[in-house]
Each structure stands twice: as C-alpha cells, then as structure tokens.
Computed example of a mutant assay.
Amino acid sequence: GNDLRHVEAALRSLPERTRQIFLLNRIHGRKYAEIAKAMGLSQSAVEKHMMRALEACKASLREPSPPRTPGNAP
C-alpha cells in the first residue's frame, strides 16, 4: 500500500550504510551481531543505525505528504 512507498522514500533519504543495515536486519533477518561483524562495526553502532532508520520510517508515516499542486508551487 501507500505506507511502503513512504518507508521506501524515508530509506532512500538515509545514509547508504544506515539503509544497508536496516535492510540486512529487516529483509534478510540478520542479527545485529552478524551485521556488526560483516560491516566491521560495533553492535552498539548497528543499534544506532537501526534506531535512526526506524525513526525515519516512523516520521515518514506520521507526516502526510503535501498535496501536489502542479504549476503553482513557489
């Protein structure tokens, strides 16, 4: 549905590494420890990236996108 589009847009706005970590965890089911090892990060760094990604997703769902008004945007 529409929600996924918002989330995808939010993820695209994230730094590459943050997005990668989020996808590894959510899509591929990797544990934080596995991601940390694979990316040469500490587990707490992975947790911070995940929190940032989740915040971005939540924020994108909270904020309704502005109505598109063709032609007369400032």
Rank of each mutant, 00 (worst) to 15 (best):
S65D: 07
E16H: 12
R12T: 12
A38M: 13
K37I: 05
A10Q: 05
N25W: 03
E34W: 01
A56Q: 02
R68D: 09
A36S: 06
R62K: 11
P66K: 05
K48N: 10
K37V: 07
M50D: 04
L41K: 05
H28D: 09
N25Q: 11
I27G: 06
C57Y: 00
T18N: 02
I21W: 00
V7A: 12
R52A: 02
R68N: 08
E34G: 09
E47T: 09
A33F: 02
S13I: 03
R26W: 04
E55C: 08
K31R: 12
T18W: 00
G29V: 03
P70G: 04
A36K: 01
L4D: 15
A45W: 02
M51H: 12
K37F: 06
F22E: 00
R19K: 12
M51K: 14
G29T: 03
L14Y: 02
G71Y: 01
E34K: 05
M51V: 10
R12H: 14
A59S: 14
E55R: 11
L14C: 13
A33C: 10
A56S: 11
S65T: 07
L54D: 07
E47K: 09
P15M: 08
E63D: 09
R5I: 13
R17S: 05
S44N: 11
E8S: 15
P67Q: 05
K48R: 15
L14M: 11
L54Y: 09
Q43G: 06
A9R: 15
L4F: 12
V7N: 06
S42G: 14
L23I: 13
D3Y: 12
A9C: 15
L41N: 01
R26N: 11
R5D: 15
E34Q: 13
P64V: 06
